[in-house]
């Protein structure tokens, strides 16, 4: 990760401010996201996460500050920014009247791609939705809807993807499915900026974590860097109990997150039991 430090960041945010009426929501946000990395924007409800994502996905204009995506200035050229981004908003943005496949074909057409049908079929297969592809999205479960939502965002291979609270409201299996999807995206070179209020989600997924609190980034870095902000580690012996999530997943017969989501560069997960 340190080797990439000199490259132009995929997302560069400088001094973004935004108020709604008299209520300041963002008070000068600075953030860099390296190309091909996953950055988690961690914050509680009302911290300004969604406001920042809306600004970065050109849905809202900041009162002050600048932002560039792939070197393109957001304020000067929002049209070109839209060509390199994709947004998966907080609430699944699928057309419930259309089938899953029709949703994908719709987006492929709007992105002016050739063979929208083939693109749709490929994504249905990648997201295990082939059987459900002919059903209306209104009949989908929350997890399926979210998968379709993310699949729609991947059409046209945008280099930068914004995910606003991608797992809020999902059951544990669906969360893990989403996590796996996001990791695969980053492995394929896509830059991902996601917001979350779940600490474990940030821990599991993110190369870097930025903590947004009361409208500014109060701290950012890798998980290890953030941990070093606290006093030195004290070694204590704690019996490793399975978490309720481990138990639940074992009982319903789905793989536990530590089996599927653990990867060599994330030593963080080994500390899970000590919390």
């Amino acid at each position: 990760m340190t080797a990439q430090a000199t490259r132009e960041p995929a997302i560069r945010v400088r001094g973004i401010e935004k108020s709604f009426q008299d209520l300041p929501v963002l008070r000068g946000v600075d953030l860099d996201v390296e190309a091909g990395s996953i950055v988690a924007l961690l914050g509680s409800n009302g911290a300004g996460k969604t406001t920042l994502v809306r600004i970065l996905s050109t849905l809202s204009r900041p009162d002050a500050g600048t932002a560039t995506v792939n070197g393109i200035d957001m304020g000067a050229n929002p049209g070109r920014v839209r060509e390199s981004i994709s947004l998966t908003g907080q609430f699944a943005a699928v057309d419930e009247v259309l089938t899953g496949r029709e949703n994908l074909v719709l987006i492929a057409r709007l992105r002016h791609l050739r063979n929208p049908g083939a693109i749709a079929d490929d994504l249905l297969a990648r997201f295990s939705l082939t059987d459900a592809g002919g059903r209306r999205a209104a009949t989908y479960s929350g997890g399926m809807r979210r998968r379709l939502d993310i699949a729609m965002s991947l059409i046209g291979d945008p280099p930068v993807i914004f995910l606003d609270e991608p797992t809020t409201g999902l059951d544990p299996q669906a969360r893990i499915e989403v996590w796996q999807t996001v990791k695969k995206l980053a492995d394929g070179g896509t830059t991902v900026l996601l917001t979350t209020q779940y600490l474990d989600e940030a821990e599991q997924l993110a190369d870097r974590i930025a903590i947004l609190h009361r409208g500014t980034i109060i701290s950012s870095g890798t998980l290890d860097e953030l941990k070093r902000l606290l006093p030195a580690v004290e070694v204590t012996y704690v019996e490793k109990q399975p978490s309720l999530e481990d138990v639940f997943l074992a009982l319903v017969g789905e793989p536990s997150e530590t089996d599927t989501a653990d990867s060599s560069d994330r030593s963080a997960t080994t500390q899970k039991g000590s919390r």
């Binding site: 809306r54 050109t58 839209r82 060509e83 994709s86 947004l87 987006i107 709007l110 992105r111 729609m152």
Partner: peptide, 8 residues
């Protein structure tokens, strides 16, 4: 919002 964030 999805439509608005797309290059259309």
């Amino acid at each position: 919002e999805r439509f608005q964030s797309m290059p259309i």
